[in-house]
């Protein structure tokens, strides 16, 4: 069973999207803590799309929640913005000093740590990002490399 919400790719729509994934995860029986992990991953992915996907014109984003057997939730986030594979994003550099620590690059790092699997596919003019969460946190992919060359 899939539920879908479509909205403008704007930050002011973020709360509505988060409310949507929150209720999907609650219906799927996810724990409160795991729902927060999901919200974090979706917030970071949505913010990336709202900021960077549509640079010349406004656009839409579609978010689908699919419940799969075995306590698995699959979130599909689709936009028609410029191609962006976040699996190729560079990992942030962690400094040991406030003055040196850079402000950027943390969002994608947070996504990687909150979900069990991330997939990306460019389909025609669409970016399709798939986030997979188990209702219990598995070994989190803190140093994953699921995007082999040629995907």
């Amino acid at each position: 069973m899939a539920e879908t919400v479509r909205s403008a790719a704007k930050i002011d729509q973020l709360e509505r999207i988060l409310e949507f994934v929150r209720s999907c995860a609650a219906r799927a029986g996810f724990s409160g803590r795991r729902i927060i992990d999901l919200e974090l991953a979706v917030e970071e992915a949505m913010v990336n799309i709202c900021r960077y996907a549509y640079t010349e014109h406004s656009g839409e984003v579609e978010v689908a929640c699919l419940q799969e057997p075995g306590g698995i939730l699959r979130i599909e986030i689709v936009d028609r913005g410029r191609p962006f594979n976040l699996l190729n994003a560079e990992k942030p550099v962690f400094e040991c000093d406030i003055g040196r620590q850079q402000l950027g690059g943390l969002g994608i790092h947070i996504i990687r740590n909150m979900v069990d699997d991330i997939r990306y596919r460019r389909e025609g003019d669409k970016n399709r990002l798939t986030l997979v969460l188990h209702d219990r946190k598995q070994n989190s992919p803190s140093t994953p490399d699921p995007a082999g060359p040629g995907r």
Partner: peptide, 20 residues
Amino acid sequence: LEYISSAGLRSILSTAKELK
């Protein structure tokens, strides 16, 4: 606080940088 995203982290870091 129940929830913090990268935007929240950045706001704290950016404030701490200013204070430093």
